[in-house]
Every structure is written in C-alpha cells, then in structure tokens.
C-alpha cells in the first residue's frame, strides 16, 4: 500500500519538539500579518539581519556555509565572541555555541500570515540545557523588535 496518510510537521511544531529535550528552554510564538518570505527575510537574510533582533548581538564577523550547515563568528554587545554552528533553512534556524543556543522557526499560518517561534538563551556550557533566567522575556523582546522592523 502506498497511500497511507502521513502526518507532516511544520517548522514551528518541530521547534517545540526539539526544545522539549532542552531543560530550561521555552518556546515563544507570535503571528504576524506579513507573508512567510517577507518575515523570514527579516529574520535571517544570510545572517546579516539576524543580529538586529536577537538579544545582545552586535556584529557578525564571518559566515561560512556548506549546504544548510553554517558556522558564524559573532560578537556580543559586551565584546565577547561566539562561534555559532548549526543548520539554517528557509523557516528554520538552529545554532549552538558553547555558551549559546538559538532556535528560530517560521511557518505559514492559516490566517494568511506567518507564525514565528523563538527559543534559546544562555547554555549550560556544552550541555543540552539552558540557564533558565529571562528566557521567555528575551524571546518576547526579540519578537517585539521583529514586529517593529516589519512595521517599518
């Protein structure tokens, strides 16, 4: 038999699944009126815009890509550097450094807009766990910054 119904999982649902394996992680969602390509372009755009709404990011010093694999050297507003490694596809971004985890997902919403979900924060060094301080607040602030950018 070949026509068994198969359940599909959108990227926002995938983010919830992945975050479930990371103690301390929270997923914060918001629906924007703009279509997915426009929203994702603001969220990622080859990494250039990524730092504009993620917390405490000042600059991207280098980006290396091979397929959907990426390595980025970023500098925080406090001057510290982080080497982020991960996977980026349209609608999906998962990055880790020794001290940071960043997860972003976006998918078309039935309303015609875009559902965006964020997770991440300060990582327990080398572990699949976050230090559970201000995780949800930072994601909300990031979504606020994204909303502001979409309005302009």
């Amino acid at each position: 038999m070949t026509n068994w119904p198969q359940a599909e999982l959108d990227d926002v649902r995938r983010l919830h699944a992945l975050a479930a394996g990371i103690p301390g992680a929270e997923v914060t969602e918001r629906v924007f009126n703009e279509p997915l390509p426009a929203v994702w372009d603001l969220m990622w755009s080859d990494g250039r815009r990524f730092i504009e709404f993620q917390p405490d990011m000042r600059s991207v010093e280098s980006v290396q890509r091979e397929g959907d694999r990426i390595t980025m050297l970023v500098r925080s507003t406090f001057g510290m550097r982080a080497r982020l490694q991960g996977v980026v596809r349209p609608g999906w971004c998962w990055l880790q450094s020794r001290f940071l985890l960043i997860g972003m997902a976006a998918t078309e919403d039935p309303t015609g807009g875009t559902r965006v979900a964020l997770t991440g924060g300060v990582r327990v060094p080398g572990r699949a766990a976050l230090i559970p301080l201000g995780v949800r607040r930072e994601s909300r602030k990031s979504l606020d910054r994204l909303a502001s950018k979409l309005e302009t």
């Binding site: 991960g86 996977v87 880790q96 699949a128």
Partner: peptide, 13 residues
Amino acid sequence: AQGGDTLAMNDLL
C-alpha cells in the same frame, strides 16, 4: 545528543 550536542538533536529530529 545524550552527551549534550543539540545539533545532533536537530539531525535526529
């Protein structure tokens, strides 16, 4: 993944 590598978790997903 059990060792704490979240990229492995991503790939497993």
